[in-house]
């Protein structure tokens, strides 16, 4: 049984390479059928804002890639409620439907349920 991995993505989509790197890791893990989960934390929740137009910055569309996650077998998707609320993101308007919303108190459990964890 392969080790389970939790990836924590806490950077906004166009502010640097963090969001891209986290997503590439998750897609690669998914393509190889690894048990992998993704948590959006801090500014990482901005990746879930719908209708973004990264072409305006000549950037590749991280958020379009996110929608492919279920096809890559990555279905354990989470976001922290505190961060969504703080940043004015409604749970019903998120770009990904299958994201589970977690309270702060549940975050430590989520991490400790996985064999390994990586933060970007």
């Amino acid at each position: 049984m392969a080790k389970s991995l939790l990836v924590i993505s806490r950077q906004a989509p166009w502010s640097g390479l963090g969001a891209r790197e986290a997503l590439d890791l998750v897609l690669a893990g998914g393509a190889f059928d690894l048990p992998i989960s993704l948590l959006f934390l801090d500014d990482g929740v901005f990746q879930l804002l719908p209708e973004q137009k990264p072409e305006a910055l000549q950037q590749k569309d991280v958020t379009a890639n996110l929608a492919a996650l279920p096809l890559f077998g990555v279905e354990q998707l989470y976001a922290a409620r505190t961060d969504l609320v703080q940043r004015g993101l409604g749970e019903s308007q998120l770009a990904l439907e299958s994201v589970r919303i977690l309270e702060d108190g549940a975050l430590a459990d989520l991490i400790n349920r996985h064999d390994q964890v990586m933060t970007f």
Partner: peptide, 17 residues
Amino acid sequence: RFQLAPATRPLIKYVAQ
């Protein structure tokens, strides 16, 4: 839709879908 070229598993899954 997804702005990427799928690897084998996601390709199979998408075609099935």
